[in-house]
């Protein structure tokens, strides 16, 4: 069984069916990209896997743990970088991480905080209020927050949005280092080129269904772009 296992998951909001019978298996240490046009259900799928949302039907397991009964344990091994930074503007970077370190009951929090701040190149501005940070810096701090407890599984929801080239490169390095460290990484993105360059596997979600999945070594950019266009008409 994979690290993330999604079986026959469906999700509706009122009458609108957002996910339809999703089946997905992500192996331990695999770097998987989920791509698809707006409204295809990518973020909803991520919110379900991250325990923020409950599916109407189906089963999700992370590291063999069923989210329906072991959500608390799953949260200990899960890191999430979402659209929003989940940070507090009026706390410094260090205080934000200290807050989350306490929530995750990290005992050696000072060491861990300094380590992750170093990883995202924010050590020099750790005592600055987050409200004075640029978007790129906030996004990097958000990544530091997500990896603070050294999670085995990390979910990224369009982390490149709004980043300049420098921050985008830093982010790519972080993504690759997490994957190289053996973490299972799931990246939700619009950027097919980026996804093919970074990931081991690419999955196309369209109108709430998994329409296509392939290992990135098995397909070229042009082949995939053509397939993507065929599926999504985008």
């Amino acid at each position: 069984m994979g690290m993330i296992n999604v079986k026959s998951v469906s999700k509706s909001f009122g009458m609108k069916e957002v996910l339809r019978d999703i089946n997905l298996d992500i192996e331990p240490g695999e770097f998987t990209a989920i791509v698809g046009p707006n409204g295809s259900g990518k973020s909803t799928l991520l919110r379900i896997i991250s325990t923020l949302l409950r599916p109407n039907s189906g089963q999700v397991t992370v590291a063999g743990l069923d989210l329906n009964t072991k959500a608390h344990t799953v949260r200990q091994i899960l890191g999430v970088v979402s659209h929003h930074t989940l940070l507090y503007d009026n706390l410094t970077a260090y205080e934000n991480l200290l807050f989350y370190a306490h929530l995750y009951s990290i005992t050696d929090y000072a060491t861990r905080i300094n380590m992750v701040l170093d990883k995202v190149n924010l050590t020099d501005s750790k005592d600055t209020l987050v409200r004075t940070y640029s978007h790129g810096m906030q996004q990097r701090l958000s990544i530091a927050r997500a990896i603070l407890h050294n999670p085995r599984v990390i979910l990224f929801d369009e982390p490149h949005t709004g980043l300049d080239q420098t921050n985008s490169i830093i982010l790519d390095k972080i993504l690759q280092s997490r994957s190289a460290a053996g973490n299972t990484v799931m990246l939700i993105t619009h950027d097919i080129k980026h996804a093919l360059a970074l990931c081991d596997k690419i999955v196309v979600l369209h109108k709430g269904k998994v329409e296509y999945q392939e290992r990135t070594t098995q397909i070229s950019y042009d082949e995939f772009a053509s397939k993507y266009h065929e599926i999504t008409n985008v």
């Binding site: 189906g58 089963q59 009964t69």
Partner: peptide, 18 residues
């Protein structure tokens, strides 16, 4: 059996009490 299970619980359980 199909692994499909309708999750009747209105929320995710906190399986480990601190």
């Amino acid at each position: 059996n199909s692994p499909v299970s309708t999750m009747k619980s209105p929320m995710y359980n906190n399986d480990k009490n601190p």
